[in-house]
Amino acid sequence: MIDPLSVQVRSMVINSSVILGFISISAMFLIWWERKVSAHIQNRLGPMIVGWHGSLQSIADTVKLLLKENIVPAGADKMIWWLAPFFVVVPSVMAFVTIPFARNFVVHDLNVGILFITSITSVCVLGIFMAGWGSNNKYSLLGGMRSAAQIISYEVPLLLSVVVVIMEAGTLSMQGIIQAQEHGWFILKPNLAIAFVIYFISSTAEVNRVPFDIPEAESELGAGYHTEYTGMKFAMFFVAEYTNLFIVSAVAATLFLGGWQGPFLPSVFWFLLKSYGIIFLSMWVRWTLPRVRMDQMMGFAWKFLTPVALLNLLISGWFMLR
């Protein structure tokens, strides 16, 4: 018995407002947490003064960014330059539609859930490219093009590893994938463990994090695609990066670690624990490894990850058919 339309719409509206609130708080929390994790790895303390152990530091930074002067670069393509932050933030927020936060809490469980997420996050590339082009700065353009090349190359192993999960679960819907893990998390199966590793590496490249952060690197010549953005526009790129990080970690938690499943405690708690656990893993990798060079990164994606992912897919398919 399907709920009447008004009830569905009402639940969607409530769920999406909760999620929008969650996104804003989560981005601020992630920025603070990244600084604390990096500080403890480096034997330091991180922010300590504003709030308890610096927890209000993100709010102070946001206020500071709001007060910054809005500089438009001369000769920039105004429309494209202005639109670029939107093209980066909006797809990230839209991807939250099908992420299952708890047993009964999902904005709308599309039956093509995972496909929707991967396709929507690909639109971010457009935003990065627009930022690079619209800045009228040859280094930003270089940075934008490199970033676009990187993201597009690493989508192939990403999708190949996700396909293995879909084959195992038999459905594209996110809640369906979680339900298929009732008898054991997917990561415990060997072919899916390899898929998890490939997924993790590719998603780190998707979000432009070390060791794949050439587009944002400071010690290279170009300072990246978001050089010419100040104030709130820069904050938008920043927020989009951390939101993307949360999305890929949440997807990893759902596909490989069983989503909101867990004993005793409410399911939303387990989901957040697993997502933030994978985010911690990503931060741990960031503060340990040096950066990979551009040509080595592309070589790694096409000559190593993609063949391994294809091989993994082939072998899992063969085992499934037997």
Partner: peptide, 17 residues
């Protein structure tokens, strides 16, 4: 040297410590 390569400050902090 490690910082120039992109290992964002972690080896540098250890060396300076």
């Amino acid at each position: 040297f490690a910082q120039d390569l992109g290992a964002y400050a972690t080896p540098m902090f250890y060396c300076f410590r």
